[in-house]
Amino acid sequence: MAETIYRDQKLWFGGYDLTGTMNALGLDCGAESKDNTVFGDDTKSNIGGLKTVAMQCEGLVDTTTYDKVLFDNIGVADVPVSFGSSGDEGDPAYTFKASLGEYSPGGAVGELLAFSVGGSSTGKLVQGSLMVNGTKTATADGTARQLGAVSATQKVYAALHVISASDADTLDVIVASDDNAGMTSATTRLTFDQQTAIGSDWQELAGAITDDYWRVSWTITDADPSFQFVVVVAIL
């Protein structure tokens, strides 16, 4: 068993990395249990109902940047939210589209001003892989990873978080698949909206896709560009 000290959890909310301002994080996912007990049963029986997804985060108020970001996003639908364990590319990551329902800054005199923020999903929670996490200054391909094929009843999902963007430059990110690790005959499956500033985007595509290798590629243009961004890809 690989125990982990909870110290470096990553949370990307839209175009912002909240890692350095939060100190507690919870992700609640479950499914309603619906009673389907009938005559003849000797024990209560239940069937799984609709799934539920919610997040709760606590931290220290950063009045310079994140206070306004969180306040402005209350009630905004479909903001991509992603969790990563260490931030290393290839690590497992969870992602979903969320809407913040609660932002509560406060505290007593003499104490650090703290906040709690809570949100719930506006779509499915998916577990996938952290494909890219870094600052890029030139067009390149990421690492191909074997995430698996997409069946006819599944979708491939991808979340893009642009944490910083240089002025007057453009970032185009795609997700491609292939049947081999070398990506010799890659097919573009998802194309994110072009990014020119801090922001985020969410794309998804229904199966079936028999390719099992997946790769993120990015095209960066204009003079002296620099983009810090994160991409999570998942199949469910």
């Binding site: 110290r7 959890q9 990553k10 949370l11 890692t19 100190n23 931290g59 950063d62 931030g87 650090l112």
Partner: peptide, 13 residues
């Protein structure tokens, strides 16, 4: 020293 995920926030009590 107050800690956040990944780093300390720089405020000392």
């Amino acid at each position: 020293r107050h800690s956040a995920m990944g780093a300390d926030c720089g405020v000392v009590s």
